[in-house]
Amino acid sequence: MSVDDILLLGRVAFVVALYLFLLALALLLRRELRVRSLVQGERAPGDLLVMEPGESGLEAGERIPLLSTTSVGRDSANDIVLDDTFISAAHATVKWNGKGWVLADSGSTNGTRLNGKDVRRPVAMKPGDVVEFGQIKFKMVEL
């Protein structure tokens, strides 16, 4: 390899390395965001997008922010309060474990469904999945 080849290669490598440094910073920021959201009550990197609001008074297309642990139900103590006849006082919970999402039913009367399937025990959920609490339908979306 001649000196000119090395210089050309080095020239490209130098700029590429600078960008890799920026990329490393971005990845570290992302990791920090995820770790931080594990702290109780902090914002998790996802939203529930309202598809069918039922009687809850929400608007279709509205985004509801998720926390590291989000409780869903009719009772006003829940993080997401859904005032709908088909929703139980404590209906379900959505959890963020730092890597992925877990949906669990809290023994509701009318059930929780993930992509049309009944949720009996905690199941993993991913962005794009459709979640139904009673007659209210959400889509899970990433932040």
């Binding site: 000196v3 090395i6 080095g10 130098f14 390395a17 890799l20 440094f21 910073l25 570290l28």
Partner: peptide, 24 residues
């Protein structure tokens, strides 16, 4: 780790500069 990365970039730059100016 980031300092090592950055240090390597800068040292690489100095090597390139040296090669461009002295051909080695």
């Amino acid at each position: 780790a980031l300092l090592t990365f950055g240090g390597a970039i800068v040292t690489g730059g100095f090597s390139l500069l040296s090669m461009a100016q002295h051909r080695h």
